[in-house]
């Protein structure tokens, strides 16, 4: 696993030159309330994610009912389900195709750590391929937990400076995953 601690991202927010201005705050609020998800649902957690979209939990309340199956339009990559080593590069490609700013939510044990599938074919956590912002434990997590995770992402989005994505820290962080920060 990479040596990157994902907290580094949060630290840069309040670093020098990255004080939140009121524009930052307004845009942060707008972004947080309009996170269009790209569901990268592969297995069991995908079904629970569907349940979260359903009437009983209603992701639409967060302004998230518009699924963006095209990575260009998505703000939040929701990885729900096992990612095998065969699928890892595909996931990375999808992440690279997303436009900045982008966030990643890793839903469930398999996506976050491999879960019970400690096997030759399963990637032991998607944070070996792409940076993850929030992990949701559970196998599969309840919709409540998925919503918790989304709200955690909201907090991050609200507190993020507009310029963070241009900062060198951010580019370095992407560099550790061999991802060039300018899209394709």
């Amino acid at each position: 696993m990479g040596k990157v601690t994902l907290d580094a991202k949060l630290e840069t927010i309040n670093g020098q030159g990255f004080q939140l201005t009121s524009i930052d705050k307004a845009i942060g609020l707008a972004r947080a309330n309009s996170l269009w998800p790209l569901p990268f649902a592969t297995s069991c957690c995908g079904i629970e994610f569907m349940a979260t979209m359903g009437s009983n939990y209603d992701l639409a309340r967060f302004g998230m009912e518009r699924m963006s199956f095209s990575p260009r339009q998505a703000d939040l990559l929701i990885v729900a389900g096992t990612i095998s080593k065969k699928l890892g590069p595909v996931l990375k490609k999808v992440y690279e195709q997303m436009a900045e700013p982008k966030w990643v939510l890793s839903v469930g044990a398999c996506a976050s750590s491999g879960g019970i599938f400690d096997t030759y074919s399963v990637l032991q956590g998607i944070d070996r391929v792409i940076p993850v912002d929030v992990y949701v434990p559970g196998c599969p997590p309840r919709p409540e937990q998925i919503i918790d995770g989304i709200m955690k992402i909201h907090e991050m989005v609200k507190n993020e400076s507009l310029r963070r994505r241009n900062s060198s820290e951010y580019k370095d962080m992407l560099g550790t995953f061999n991802i060039e920060s300018d899209g394709e």
């Binding site: 400690d118 030759y120 074919s121 032991q124």
Partner: peptide
Amino acid sequence: PMRKEYQLEDATREDK
């Protein structure tokens, strides 16, 4: 991989 002599586990796991 299913032959008995090959191990099941992913060699890169380090959290156990």
